[in-house]
Every structure is written in C-alpha cells, then in structure tokens.
C-alpha cells in the first residue's frame, strides 16, 4: 500500500510517500478502511495525533473513516490546509 504525504505529514514521517509492504501486516490484518489505516498510522507515527486535523483522501476526494480501500486506490494524508 502506497500513501502520498503532504505538508507537515511529510516531516513527521520523513519522506514524500510511505510504502507499507503487505508483509507489515499479519494475515487479515491489513487496513480495509480509511479508519483502520488512520489507526495504523497514528500508532506507527504518534505525532500525527497532535495535528489540528488529519484528513485522508482516496482517489482525489476526501474520504470518511468507513470508506473501503485497496492497494489500487491513490491514498493521501491531508494535514490542515493553508492555501491563499
């Protein structure tokens, strides 16, 4: 699973994208939804929990925690935005 990182999440995780090999999960343990992915990442990188907000985008749209994901989706972490 490949996750694109932006803004402060790039600093926290230390690279512009994060590739999680399937071997990182025990059988049936890989995140199947946005919520499960968020839980996994917040455990692996606790600093993510300190952000004012952390959205997950799936295929260029903001996604709710219930949204199902698979390895073909384009997934990105969106920290607080600051355009304009």
């Amino acid at each position: 699973m490949n996750i694109l990182l932006f803004g402060v999440t790039k600093d926290i995780i230390g690279s512009p994208s994060l590739s999680i090999p399937s071997t990182a999960f025990s059988r049936n343990d890989a995140p199947k939804t946005v919520g499960e992915l968020r839980e996994f990442l917040e455990k692996a990188y606790p600093e993510l929990q300190n952000l004012a907000s952390l959205a997950v985008a799936v295929n260029n749209s903001y996604a709710e925690d219930e949204k199902e994901i698979n390895s073909f989706d384009e997934i990105a972490l969106i920290p607080p935005v600051s355009g304009g």
Binding site: G7, V8, P79, V81
Partner: peptide, 9 residues
C-alpha cells in the same frame, strides 16, 4: 478555497 483545497504553506 481556504477550507478545502489541499495547499500547504
């Protein structure tokens, strides 16, 4: 724009 667009300063 200020609320939704993924731009980071």
């Amino acid at each position: 724009i200020k609320k939704d667009v993924p731009v980071f300063g």
